[in-house]
Simulated assay, not measured.
Amino acid sequence: MNEELRCIGCGAPIQTENPEELGYTPNAALKKGEETGEVYCQRCFRLRHYNDIQDVQLTDDDFLRLLNQIGETDALIVNVIDIFDFNGSVIPGLHRFIGNNPVLLVGNKVDILPKSLKKSKMTQWLRERAHEVGLRPKDVLLTSAKKASDIHMLLEKIEQYRKGKDVYVVGVTNVGKSTLINAIIKQTAGVKDVITTSQFPGTTLDKIEIPLEDGHCLVDTPGIIHQYQMAHYLGKKDLRITAPTKEIKPKIYQLNAGQTLFLGGLARFDFVQGERTSFIAYVSNDIEIHRTKLERATDFYEKHRGGLLQPPRPDEIADFPELVRFEFSIKEKTDIVFAGLGWITVTTPCVVAGWAPKGVDVVRRKALI
């Protein structure tokens, strides 16, 4: 294939191998494009014909280059994170790259959390977690791409803080950033007006510019791959099971010390030491939780993973990483978080352990709920 072939929409080098990466176009579309002299990558094609922005993934090097570019601009940074997976969706060291640019922190997918949770408490919790990782956002906003009123509020906040500047939207993969951008386009452009690439001037290989009324742009950047997310170890079918799309229903377990909970075959929670107490699991409603004795938990896992304990599926066991143990001594109400999968709230002082696939983080944090 001619290596110099580039997308006329965004300038990305055309490739036909990996749908997740920049410049992907299917072989059939490439042949058609070469005949007409208009070769678009799939991302630009879908934007041009369907008003649809697809997320693509950057390597760490690409992302560092992009972050440095953003640091040199004078813009508002909208950092989208997944409220259900804060630890898995925060961008490490973002504050070091963005210079003096103001940050609007947007907690997306708020519709997944229990409705009983007060938004004011959640916003405060989100601000505290942001401060812990060095971010000092101008404002914190909770949103759902599914609710038009939330998108309207987000647009109002963007207008309030951008002060006539460009806006850069950044986030790791799987936080729903592209869905949010599409909802913004739908609301600002009107559903009936088909947006074409001609309305997206100067798009470069790593970002798409959406014009604002005053001549500035809202810039969509590709999703950054976060190395510690559970999603990297799952097939597409299992991603649908583990990533909740509806309000999660908390599951409460009364446990004695020496008992274990398995979250499918993806993670494990041990109650090591303490008085009988309750633990609350916040994971996708589609994940089955199994209880067993701690002393036989390892044998139970070896025997049942890929069967009773799914995901992973039987044909994925060979490639699935071993589970690694993290122990915690708990003094107050705390969440034990399995990055990208959910968390278990520990309600009283005790010793517990969380297990996750090698490479996936298990961390403690102040209880969200």
Rank of each mutant, 00 (worst) to 15 (best):
S116L: 14
S198C: 09
L135R: 06
E20K: 11
Q254E: 11
A367C: 11
L117W: 12
L58N: 09
K118C: 00
N79H: 14
E21P: 07
G215I: 04
I98A: 04
N101D: 02
E72G: 08
A28W: 12
T345N: 05
Y161M: 01
G88A: 11
T25Q: 11
V352F: 01
A75V: 04
T292V: 05
G134K: 11
V219P: 04
Q187R: 14
T245Q: 15
F200I: 05
G33N: 06
E128D: 15
S149C: 13
D82L: 03
V170K: 07
V56A: 11
N2E: 05
D299H: 15
G307M: 09
N2K: 09
E35P: 08
K186E: 00
A339D: 00
T203N: 15
R305D: 00
I53F: 12
I195L: 07
E35T: 10
E213Y: 05
V283C: 08
I151G: 03
Q42T: 11
K303Y: 14
Y228D: 10
T221V: 05
Q227Y: 13
K146C: 05
W343R: 15
P222Y: 05
L239V: 02
H216P: 04
A353K: 08
F63P: 03
P349C: 12
E35C: 08
R276C: 13
D315M: 11
P201G: 06
A367L: 09
L135P: 01
V169A: 05
S149R: 15
L263Q: 08
T197P: 10
A148G: 09
Y50V: 05
N256R: 15
C7W: 01
M153S: 14
E213V: 00
V90Y: 11
V272Q: 06
G23M: 01
V352K: 03
E247Q: 12
D214N: 02
P357R: 06
V283P: 04
K109W: 04
D299Y: 15
Q227T: 12
S284H: 08
T16Q: 07
W355F: 06
P244V: 00
G306N: 00
T334G: 01
I77F: 03
C217N: 13
V140W: 00
K249G: 12
A12G: 08
D62T: 03
K237G: 09
F320E: 00
E302C: 02
I241Y: 07
R240F: 09
D193K: 15
K121Q: 14
F262I: 01
C7L: 01
G215T: 01
A12Y: 06
N108Y: 05
R43Q: 11
L117G: 10
F63D: 04
K303G: 09
T204W: 07
G202P: 03
V272I: 05
G134V: 04
G164T: 04
L255I: 06
V337W: 03
A267S: 08
L76N: 06
R296K: 15
S120R: 09
I98P: 03
K236P: 14
R240Y: 10
